[in-house]
């Protein structure tokens, strides 16, 4: 089985976000970057399935060279090779289009992604890629087993979950508890250095959306403290002052 795992390169979840160039660019200075947490789940399950079925696993990232350490980490975790499309992915359609060029019909049996990226997070790239390739997509997937050419998956639906069987190929957006995050071991790190990382230029596409400006939320006012002994008065304040009851 041939598996493709699409990963993002995102600021660490605890990073403080600021902007530069008159609020038109993310200020990347001093921000630690990580593989998107949901993509990490997709990668972990991908590696397990590859080992089970004796297949191969390629990681794909649409982004610039500063993502290479994260791509190497994915190789150290167990991917066989990597592809990076050299572009700044600011539009979901553009990103999906580039992924679809690599994942042309017949190339991969299973395309695993995260439920959503946590930077310009939207949760739409899997659906876009699925439609571009003319195959089904499901998200968020919490359990995944493959038997032959059929996937059995459990996914979250509003207020519950469902189990379904679908034929491959599929595009899936993953979330925990699909697998436990994997940490690269020493051997993985060593072999990752020599695994192939192919850099491709993007296929031209007219721009459908363009970010213009970034803003930060207005800071919260001070928190109003209520003494524990008068806890009950909180309810009245929520009704009369905050007007949320």
């Amino acid at each position: 089985m041939k598996i493709l795992v699409c990963i993002t390169n995102v600021p660490d979840t605890t990073a403080k976000i600021t902007f530069t160039d008159n609020d038109t660019k993310l200020n990347k200075a001093g921000i630690p970057y990580i593989i998107g947490p949901y993509d990490d789940y997709a990668l972990a399950r991908g590696v397990e399935l590859k080992e089970q079925t004796g297949g191969s696993l390629t990681v794909l990232h649409v982004g610039e060279a500063d993502a290479d350490p994260q791509i190497r980490k994915a190789l150290a975790i167990g991917a066989d090779d990597a592809i990076r499309i050299n572009a700044d992915p600011l539009d979901s359609y553009f990103t999906a289009f580039q992924i679809a060029q690599v994942a042309k019909p017949g190339t991969y049996d299973l395309i695993l992604m995260g439920r959503e990226s946590i930077d310009y997070n939207s949760g739409v790239v899997h659906g876009l890629v699925g439609e571009m390739l003319g195959i089904a997509s499901y998200s968020p997937v919490m359990k995944l087993e493959i038997t032959g050419s059929t996937a059995t998956l459990s996914r979250e639906i509003d207020g519950g979950k469902e189990v379904l069987q679908a034929p491959l190929p599929l595009v899936l957006g993953c979330q925990e508890p699909i697998a436990e995050w994997k940490i690269p071991n020493m051997r993985g790190i060593m072999t990752a250095r020599t695994k192939p990382l192919q850099v491709l230029e993007p296929v031209a596409l007219e721009e459908l959306t363009t970010p213009q400006k970034y803003t930060l939320p207005t800071p919260k006012g001070a928190c109003k403290m209520i003494p524990a002994s008068e806890a009950g008065t909180l309810i009245r304040l929520l009704q009369t002052e905050a007007k949320v009851l």
Partner: peptide, 17 residues
């Protein structure tokens, strides 16, 4: 999101979620 994404790909529409 899934519907919007698939419709966007069919219509070549810009999508913002």
């Amino acid at each position: 999101d899934a519907l919007a994404a698939r419709a966007a790909a069919k219509l070549k529409a810009g999508i913002v979620s």
